[in-house]
Design a protein around this nucleic acid. Structure first.
Lengths: 213, 213
DNA sequence: CCTCGAAGTTACCGTTGTCAACATATGTTT
DNA sequence: AAACATATGTTGACAACGGTAACTTCGAGG
């Protein structure tokens, strides 16, 4: 009946477990933490979680949903204030996207994992689409303003998302660093090159942009 | 002396286990198959694998290495015969990359997983770089021929790799289909848009293309 | 006050990855 | 040819895991 069930014994154990699990995601490798360790940290017995989640996959899926919500918030917060060009807004949002993934590598991987999808495919797509909507809006606005090439919007969204996703994951894996890709600013350059494929008119001067982080 | 040790009891059990494991990667979800099931299929006892791999992670890492080798072969095989433009070669290679990931989703994910990296980080980077070299060559040649913009080569390589990686993973996850990205040819469009960011001169197409300057 | 179901616990099950001890085959040395 | 050392494979065990079933506790509504 209640969408937000009141605490009985513990005091919203469900939330506590999600929070603790999110912490453990930040520590361990992958999402291979155990439900028993999670229960240990929450101070309950090792089967308490089954009163709130059918199984471990469901718990993981819930974390992934929260992850997409956090990503959406991070993207929205990254849009700079009014008097900035759409281009700057796009770049800031892109950097926020990559930063989110880099700061929460295990969470970001989990969000796109087969494990999470198996347990909540439909809801995951919804929350994912909600986060993506920020990018969609920006691209639609960019086309209207004549900044971006006229083209099927969702083709550009797909291209942009793929680039952000790729840059984020390669960065997480340390593959865009000077170790493999012999460039110091490979991530930033990739965003620039993406933009050059999206924009209606190219800027003069093909020199690589020098920007921190 | 021998890189390929002769069979004693079984007959190159190491190879047999790798092959069987590769098959199981194609079936199960992720790489959560069990060593015991693997041994069962290979017809040996459940601890036989420990004579050939220190632990499961090492076995997985070996699979990932093989995966990068296979990817390299697939990319090389995709370059069309002589009288084709560099652009076509690039597109064919890109499609082959995405096709490889789509055809072997679990293997592709494993190749970039934290699990595999934890067990063989250095060798993974080497084999990965070997596969990537196909892309590097093509881009260097493209710049020399004036087809691609003059720019730090590895910045373009990074941008290209990120796009291929992103498109591949989103395709695997079914997120580039008309379900989320409302376009039928999102993957192909993403490759086109990438090219438009890399090329020196834009082709005339469905949109008002303008030459720089 | 008393019942009822939600929240949490205890006991248990089958399975897993891994280790130690043992058995067997191979090819090298004497 | 006999003996040995070593690589290969097996048996048996262990703790830890995810999950189920039966039990206990506790707060809320009549």
């Amino acid at each position: 009946m209640n969408d937000v069930p009141k605490p009985y014994h513990h005091g919203d154990l469900r939330r506590a477990m999600l929070d603790t699990a999110m912490d453990m995601l930040a520590e361990d490798n992958g999402w291979q933490f155990t439900l028993r360790e999670l229960a240990r940290r929450a101070g309950v017995s090792h089967t308490a979680s089954y009163k709130h989640f059918p199984d471990k996959a469901a718990l993981l899926a819930e974390l992934a949903l929260i992850g997409f919500d956090k990503l959406r918030v991070a993207l929205l917060a990254a849009r700079p204030p009014a008097p900035s060009s759409l281009r700057d807004q796009f770049l800031e949002m892109s950097r926020a996207y990559v930063r989110f993934g880099s700061a929460n590598p295990n969470l970001y991987r989990l969000m796109f994992s087969a494990d999470a999808r198996a347990a909540a495919s439909e809801r995951l797509k919804e929350h994912g689409a909600a986060a993506l909507a920020v990018l969609v809006d920006l691209i639609e606005e960019g086309q209207r303003a004549g900044w971006l090439r006229k083209r099927e919007v969702y083709e550009q969204v797909g291209a942009g998302w793929a680039q952000l996703h790729g840059v984020t994951l390669l960065t997480i894996d340390g593959l865009l660093g000077p170790d493999v890709i012999r460039s110091e600013h490979a991530a930033e350059a990739a965003l620039q090159i993406l933009l050059e494929g999206l924009e209606a008119v190219r800027e003069l001067g093909a020199s690589p942009a020098r920007r921190p982080g």
